[in-house]
């Protein structure tokens, strides 16, 4: 291959090949170094910001895991323990019982337990919950917003490209550090002083 100009001289093609080979290693080192320089030691995982979530139900339909890795979480310190729970009962309920037609949850994933008059405890059964956020929406619209969505990392496979995050209309999904994998609501908040005005009086 090529002309040899002397015993210890490499051919032109071989010289070119070596040069390109070095160029390839330099390019690889450069890209790798650049990426490594800007890299983080920790891995990241996906999580929902409950403050941004708009309860659009994409979480229940777009996850690659079935049922979704997104689950409703109950924050007991925030919960009002209402006898009439807006997240539990369907707006068109017949009576305050756990009969299916009275429940808002499509999968019977909320357990309603009597504590003492007039308080009831509401528990989410993770393996039944599909992350549809129906209860979350009702609880936030009418109640204390103690129900909220979180990614359960026991189920989440941490896809490189989260398929729910792609569809999220409110940018509520982002990568969080491995060390802080949840955005939990746990602080009991200030009790509201609500004022009600009839629209008719305006």
């Amino acid at each position: 291959m090529g002309d040899l100009n002397g015993p210890d001289k490499v051919s032109r093609i071989e010289f070119l090949r070596q040069g390109l080979s070095r160029l390839a290693s330099v390019a690889l080192g450069l890209v790798g170094g650049l990426a490594a320089f800007g890299s983080r030691r920790e891995n990241t995982v996906w999580q929902i910001d409950p403050a941004k979530c708009v309860k659009c139900e994409h979480c229940s339909t777009d996850c690659v895991v079935a049922p979704s890795a997104v689950k409703c979480v109950q924050s007991y310190p925030i919960c009002g323990y209402c006898r009439y729970c807006f997240g539990y009962f369907h707006p068109h309920y017949d009576e305050l019982t756990s009969a299916a037609e009275n429940q808002l949850c499509p999968t019977d994933a909320i357990e309603r337990v009597f504590v003492e008059d007039p308080y009831w405890e509401y528990n989410i059964e993770m393996d039944k919950c599909i992350g549809c956020a129906k209860c979350v929406k009702a609880c936030e619209d009418f109640g204390n917003a103690s129900f909220y969505l979180q990614v359960n990392h026991e189920i989440c496979v941490n896809c490189n490209n989260c398929s729910i995050a792609m569809q999220c209309p409110s940018d509520a999904w982002d990568r969080v550090p491995y060390d802080e994998p949840y955005r939990l609501k746990h602080e009991p908040r200030q009790v509201a002083e609500l004022s009600f005005e009839s629209p008719g009086k305006k």
Partner: peptide, 18 residues
């Protein structure tokens, strides 16, 4: 009848006193 004060960071119902 709609609540006029409807903020994100407040509880509508007080925490129960068991």
């Amino acid at each position: 009848l709609m609540p006029v004060v409807q903020a994100e960071d407040v509880m509508r119902f007080p925490a129960p006193e068991f």
